[in-house]
């Protein structure tokens, strides 16, 4: 049960550890296009595996993975926990929001403590941009960013790409990447790490990314990331092949950005009627914590042939399994994975 047949991508990537020369997965910004594709291809085997009735593998047997979540999360934490357990790792969840951090321990001290427990991988979510990189600089094991402030959420971007790839394949479209496709991301772009990682990942894979938000929720200068911006949702939707809706992150807002959820729905809610402006077979995505009736109507979220929202959740486990597998290969002494690794630390 330990050997899973790899999808046939040998030869597409540098051999061994050169295919992914990073110790950590901190963001999409650090990855080359072929490294993104490598993680997606690695995840394919786990997609199949996860559909089997018995889902146990010993790849990470004996390894300890700590999920340190300094910000509340249900779905991402669960997804990482399942991913680690299916690979046979000992998974420990640390709900830092209710721990020593509340007693005034600094983030660095928490990091040193986790490191002293000799974790083999640490998955971190934190409410402050850059916090995960800061912790990574103080520990000796691979660190996976499960979301840092409004900065990055790399596994979300990867799972979105994988879900999109699968949806396109299911329709019979060859979909190694997304060259020429129009992808619209609409919602609270300003506070969204999903949007930032998504932009980096989708543009690296060839998509034309459109961002749509009311002006106050559109970050200044984001056009420099190679996207087109819109404040009119209908204009953004015209010709869109994929529409990814984001929720309003009211918990990160200082001051009022939107008069009311009702008004937001009027201007930016994805309704059946609006969806008709997009490409005829446009796919609908949402990274989670959906506010039905605000940014997306139930009837759209539940469209069987158009909405791939549940597929995104499914792909999340596979992507996280791939990330945990790839990042722990050096420690596990996988042949070809002993070369130098880029920690990318500045201090």
């Amino acid at each position: 049960m330990t050997s899973i047949e790899k999808s046939s991508f040998a030869g597409r990537y540098p051999s061994g550890g050169a295919a992914f020369p990073h110790r950590d997965l901190l963001g999409i910004a650090q990855l080359e296009r072929h490294e993104i594709l490598y993680l997606l291809d690695e995840a394919e085997q786990w997609v199949e595996f996860n559909r089997r009735p018995s889902k146990h593998n010993d790849t990470l047997a004996g390894l300890t993975i700590i999920n340190a979540f300094f910000e509340n999360s249900t779905r991402t934490l669960l997804s990482f926990e399942i991913a680690g357990k299916r690979l046979g790792a000992d998974v420990v969840n640390m709900h830092a929001a209710q721990s020593s951090v509340k007693k005034g321990e600094t983030l660095i001290d928490t990091a040193i403590t986790l490191n002293a427990m000799r974790a083999d991988g640490i998955v971190i979510r934190h409410g402050s941009s850059g916090a995960v990189a800061l912790i990574a600089s103080k520990v000796d094991c691979p660190v996976l960013n499960a979301g840092d402030g409004s900065h990055e959420h790399p596994t979300q971007a990867l799972l979105d790409a994988l879900a999109l790839r699968h949806a396109l394949r299911a329709r019979g479209e060859a979909a190694d990447d997304f060259t020429g496709m129009n992808v619209t991301i609409c919602g609270d772009i300003l506070h969204s790490r999903v949007a930032r990682s998504g932009v980096l990942c989708l543009t690296a894979l060839g998509a034309n990314v459109r961002l749509c938000a009311p002006p106050a929720l559109m970050p200044v200068g984001i056009e420099r990331m190679g996207v087109t911006t819109f404040s009119n949702f209908d204009e953004a939707l015209a010709g869109s092949d994929v529409i990814m809706m984001l929720r309003l992150q009211t918990e990160r807002m200082e001051g009022q950005f939107i008069p009311s959820p009702r008004e937001y729905h009027h201007l930016y809610g994805l309704t059946q009627k609006r969806l008709a402006n997009a490409a005829p077979d446009a796919l609908v995505m949402h990274p989670g914590t959906m506010n039905r009736g605000v940014e997306i109507d139930s009837e759209v979220a539940d469209l069987i042939d158009r909405s791939i929202i549940t597929r995104q959740v499914e792909m999340g486990v596979a992507i996280r399994m791939a990330a945990l597998d790839v990042l722990t290969r050096r420690a596990r002494g996988v042949p070809g994975w002993s070369g130098t690794v880029n920690t990318g630390h500045w201090a």
Partner: peptide, 21 residues
Amino acid sequence: TGPAAATAGEMATRLGLPSAP
């Protein structure tokens, strides 16, 4: 400025930092 830690622009946007014009 509010709680801004950076100047609004490409850099702050890429880093996801609270920024002010």
